[in-house]
Simulated scan of single mutants.
Amino acid sequence: MPRTPRKPSAIRRKAASATVAAVSATALALTLSGCASYDAQSPKSARNAAYDAADNGKGGSPLPAGAVDCRKAKCIALTFDAGPSEHTPALLKVLKEKKVSVTFFLLGHNHVDKYPELVKQMAANGNVLGNHSWTHPRLTDLPPEKIRAELDHLDTEVERLTGTRPTLMRPPQGRTDEKVSKVCKELGLAQVLWNDTASDYATTDTALITKRILDKADRDGIILLHDLYQGTVPAVPGIIDALHAQGYTFVTVPELLAPATPEPGKVYRP
């Protein structure tokens, strides 16, 4: 028996519902990422602008001898949030064996204060230490003085432990806005977001974490992982090997931007 055609009004209602759902999902995504309230620059754009400035004699800095040239190399940055943790020693061993340097965005309470010796180890072998706040609040919900306290506390402690003050910051949950950017500028911190993550906070499935990262990997990309979750560190060797096989060169975030220098207050996102 032929199917009864759907009434036009029903079709219109379904289409309207789908449109509302799509708009709501988009609005939610923008809210969660903070996309509606800040401007971001890609690492490639920052890098190219620095080369253009150098070519035009406007003060741009060329790459130092021996540095990776991400115009030629297929670069990707591997980053880890919310460490150190009990899993960090295993991660550091993998990175040393694979000869890969990464960028760590450190969390203060119950992490930096709990594992101070690991912070010192994380700063070795070319790794870069960044700021992920002291207690992981939504910075956009805080007044400027509390944002400043969260970030300055972490910076000060890392500097005390390693002798180097962080110049990079990753806002918790990726939430930032003009208010956060202003405080970061005052503190000398550039903000770093990402384009490739495995949502490893929601799964312990190492194979799934690996697949999610490899599916989204792209040149000049920034990978976000967390070494504090059980399934993540076991995924790292396979991720590194697979991306090496695809011709990628692993770099830190400053190397990805070079010869540009991370600009305090600015947001960088692939």
Rank of each mutant, 00 (worst) to 15 (best):
Pro8Cys: 11
Ala10Met: 04
Thr19Gln: 06
Ala22His: 00
Ala25Leu: 14
Thr26Asn: 03
Leu30Ile: 15
Thr31Cys: 01
Gly34Asn: 11
Tyr38Glu: 05
Ala40Thr: 13
Arg47Val: 07
Ala50Gly: 08
Ala50Leu: 08
Gly57Met: 07
Pro64Cys: 02
Gly66Glu: 04
Val68Met: 04
Arg71Cys: 06
Arg71Lys: 15
Arg71Leu: 13
Lys74Pro: 11
Phe80Thr: 08
Glu86Phe: 01
Leu91Cys: 07
Asp113Leu: 03
Pro116Leu: 11
Met122Cys: 08
His136Gln: 03
Arg138Ala: 12
Thr140Gln: 01
Leu142Cys: 02
Pro143Tyr: 02
Pro144Thr: 12
Pro144Tyr: 04
Arg148Met: 04
Asp155Thr: 11
Gly163Asn: 10
Thr164Trp: 04
Pro166Asp: 04
Arg170Met: 01
Gln173Leu: 08
Thr176Asn: 14
Lys179Cys: 01
Lys182Met: 08
Cys184Arg: 05
Lys185Tyr: 02
Leu189Arg: 10
Asp196Pro: 00
Asp200Phe: 06
Tyr201Glu: 12
Ala202Leu: 13
Ile209Asn: 06
Ile213Ser: 05
Ala217Ile: 09
Ala217Trp: 06
Asp218Trp: 00
Asp218Gly: 12
Arg219Ala: 12
Gly221Lys: 05
Ile223Met: 02
Tyr229Gln: 12
Gly231Gln: 06
Pro234Leu: 10
Val236Trp: 03
Val236Gln: 03
Val236Tyr: 03
Ile239Leu: 02
Leu243Thr: 09
His244Glu: 14
His244Ala: 14
Gln246Trp: 00
Phe250Asp: 12
Phe250Ser: 11
Val253Phe: 14
Val253Ser: 09
Val253Lys: 12
Leu256Cys: 11
Arg269Asp: 10
Pro270His: 11
Pro270Phe: 08
